[in-house]
Computed example of a mutant assay.
Amino acid sequence: MTKLEGKVALITGAALGLGRGIAQVYAKYGAKLCLVDLAPQLETTAQELRQEFGVEVITVTADVADASMMEEAVAKTVAQFGQLNIVCSNAGVCRLAPFENFDAAMRDFHIDVNIKGVWNTCQAGIKQFLEQGGGTIVIASSVTGDLVADAGEAAYAMTKAAMVGLTKALAVEYADRNIRVNCTQLGYARTPMVEKMAQESNPEDPESVITGIAQSVPMKRLADPKEVGELFAFLGSDESSYLTGTQIVIDGGSTLPETIGMGTN
């Protein structure tokens, strides 16, 4: 038996990028899946998983910022599979701008998706977990905000740092009711979101931004989304049964160097 066989997982932001990588790993380990996203590629991703891994997959087109939609996504998952064991709250956004020019609409967009969206997803999942006697939540935070930040990332950093606090608060509140809550803190993976950030950083040569990121990482590369999916799978599985309230950095060592130029290398 693979480590997620018999488990049912709901994954937000699952159509592309990191969410797609998480879904691929969960499917590899035998989980039944509900994929949630607004992107038009959602059903294409689901069909790829069905064909490659032979797992049961349903899709729900929903906005995580809408609490009623997330309640409905959970309800559809339970109606289809009879239970919900794991919630992967992955959906997130990042837009770059100088702080003095960062308008209220874009600020609120980050808050709506990165904070309210995670809140809504976790709340809908926890209500179901309380009914059935337990479950596991994995939240996608970031090294940005809690550990590091770059210029122009004020909204992203603020909202991702909030995920660490939410993780710890929920972990404490529900630990005695068989509900575990952990978060991942990713550096950079090669995803459409990171590629868009590179475009915003250097419209003339966005690939040079990606190359620069890789050179600043001790492992000299960005993560593959499936590598992050492996961490999500571990945290969602019974292998991590005594872990709750943790924040696990997965960044290829990018937050380790004290400086860029100092040292013997």
Rank of each mutant, 00 (worst) to 15 (best):
G134A: 11
D112W: 05
C88D: 11
L18V: 14
V138Y: 05
R20G: 01
T184E: 03
A151Y: 10
H110Y: 08
I126E: 11
V172R: 12
V8E: 05
A157N: 12
I248G: 05
A91P: 10
V249D: 04
A155W: 05
L42Y: 00
T45E: 11
S254M: 15
L16D: 08
V228M: 14
L235N: 08
S208L: 08
P192H: 02
G229T: 06
M106N: 13
F129S: 06
Y174H: 15
V217A: 09
K32P: 02
I11G: 04
Q47N: 15
A97C: 11
V113M: 04
G21K: 03
G263L: 11
Q199T: 13
F129P: 05
F53A: 10
D238N: 15
G19Y: 06
L4T: 08
G125P: 10
L243P: 04
M158K: 01
F53N: 07
A154M: 13
D205Y: 02
R50G: 01
V93S: 06
F232C: 15
L35Q: 01
F129K: 05
K127G: 01
G125N: 11
Q128A: 09
R107I: 13
L38E: 09
E52W: 00
A73M: 08
P206V: 05
N114R: 06
Q215E: 15
V249C: 04
F53R: 05
A73P: 06
T2V: 03
S241M: 08
A27N: 04
G263N: 10
E227N: 10
E52P: 02
D63T: 02
A140P: 00
F232M: 14
Y242V: 12
I111C: 06
K3C: 04
A233S: 15
G6C: 07
K127V: 13
L33R: 12
M158P: 00
G13N: 10
Q247G: 05
T264D: 13
R221Q: 14
T259K: 08
P192S: 06
G133Y: 05
S237W: 06
V55T: 08
F234G: 10
Y188N: 13
G82W: 07
G263M: 09
A189C: 13
D63W: 01
K76D: 01
L166N: 10
L235T: 07
D251V: 02
A214I: 04
C94A: 15
E230H: 14
T191L: 03
G252S: 09
L231T: 03
E72V: 00
E43L: 03
E5V: 03
A79I: 00
L10S: 10
S216C: 07
D150E: 12
